[in-house]
Design a protein around this nucleic acid. Structure first.
Lengths: 182, 182
DNA sequence: GTCTATAGAAGGATAGAC
DNA sequence: GTCTATCCTTCTATAGAC
């Protein structure tokens, strides 16, 4: 089918190794060994290690931008629900890339990622249902980042449906309170 | 007062830089420049880069173990509350170390950290109130890791009381449901 | 497209003067 | 205790043959 099997192999192995040891913790040599080729081959397909990272994360970033655009047309409660569903779906489909977006923002300076901080803030606001309560804001941040970390670490999809569980948890935290304190 | 001002400076600057760029992403040269000394001085005070990391994280790990021990004497609901309060307190007091414990487990092999995975699992179980429901388990993981990430990123302690907010959020997710579905 | 060989920089760590 | 100088390794990236 695809003739770029080497290119695909590189992307696949790089994703695996980056997710395990981090971007800085993975060398081109490591990737080359995993793929079964030389470092020079890696750099034939991708102009640099940074470029490899960018290629790896690009589709995830694009989908994140698409979600952001979609959310802009919604408001309040419906935006919150769409944000949760959309984000959980995205994170589950791009498990390995998620870690990278996290540590790559600090690890490298890839211009393509510009504007992602603002996007991230809009996502937090959507999770919070645009509530003015600071606690709702913190709740949104906890859930957002917690979902990322859990998906990263939860390698094995055993019995339970992770998507449902994550969505349920998010609803627990984010759904507007019906005043009932202890 | 303390005569080890250089040693303290090194620990302080290393904590700052490690938290910003990660362990692998920070070189001894970076730390030396920040402290205003040479690499050799760094390695006079700490036998290796790994040893510096260990010294930095050690107190946090010890307190984590202490919390774990304390929790072992409690059960169910009281254990859950104690776990949340204790953990939030710990994470807030060791903000910078938290990131390190996360990425150092993958970055380096420091024997002193042995057994921390099991400890971490016990903490998750305590957060979940030892509920057998898998969703409660996921909820505990989301909150636990979410709290860590939020504290790391939430550098500035502006108006709101982060401790109260985090505790409140944790209670929202973890407190046993009174059956009320949408 | 893939390789070997190698350049050139940066990393951690040591030796020895002060 | 702190420094400069140096060693050795590893890293990213390039050159050029096949």
């Amino acid at each position: 089918m695809t003739r770029n099997h080497t290119r695909e192999d590189i992307l696949s192995e790089a994703a695996r190794l980056f997710a395990r040891a981090g971007y800085k913790g993975t060398s081109l040599h490591d990737i080359a060994v995993a793929v079964g080729c030389s470092k020079a081959t890696l750099l034939y397909h991708f102009s640099s290690k940074d470029a490899l990272l960018a290629a790896l994360v690009e589709p995830a970033i694009q989908e994140l931008r698409a979600l952001d655009t979609r959310l802009a047309t919604l408001d309040g409660e419906s935006a919150r629900a769409a944000a949760v569903d959309g984000f959980v779906d995205l994170v589950l489909r791009y498990r390995r890339q998620v870690t990278l977006v996290y540590d790559s923002l600090q690890a490298t300076e890839i211009p393509r990622f510009a504007g992602i901080d603002a996007l991230s803030e809009r996502l937090v606001r959507a999770f919070a249902g645009h509530s003015p309560d600071p606690v709702d804001d913190i709740a949104a941040r906890v859930v957002l980042s917690g979902i990322c970390t859990v998906v990263i670490e939860h390698a094995d999809p055993d019995g339970i449906d992770l998507r449902d569980a994550l969505t349920t948890v998010a609803e627990r935290v984010l759904r507007p309170r019906t005043r009932q304190e202890s």
